[in-house]
Amino acid sequence: MATATARISNRDEQDVDEMSETPDFGDHVDNTIFSQLLEMDDDDERDFSGPLVENFFEQADETFVNMDLALTKKDLEELSKLGHFLKGSSSTLGFNKIRDSCQIIQQYGHKLNVDGSDEKDEKVCLTKIEAAIQVAKVDKKELEKLMNDFFGKAK
């Protein structure tokens, strides 16, 4: 077995070069979008992006609580709305992994599979949503740590 890649990254070399000033968050973050945010900071203080990202995590936590509640009530419509909601902000910040999970939640909330075909079984939808919420939570946790490191360093 050839064992070459010990680097913990699966991004293109090209991307890494291109974004040399932004850190590598792996597949969690779309660096093109995220660097747009960083550009909005007046200087290196990260006065805009730092609190924004922080706000996002708060929003994510709140949404997870609401999702769990909606899950208890088996309220697919609400779950779909919540999925859409968090998808909006995660995609705005370029947090792709969370966005993808939210997309799944939104789709199954509409009783659709990810490919857009119908999924009539509500139980299946709830299970999928539940799994996606779990993944999103884990991803959020991982990402939050990466972001804390990043903004911690910046300060």
Partner: peptide
Amino acid sequence: DNLINQKV
């Protein structure tokens, strides 16, 4: 409606 998106 999303605060984050508003801010961005």
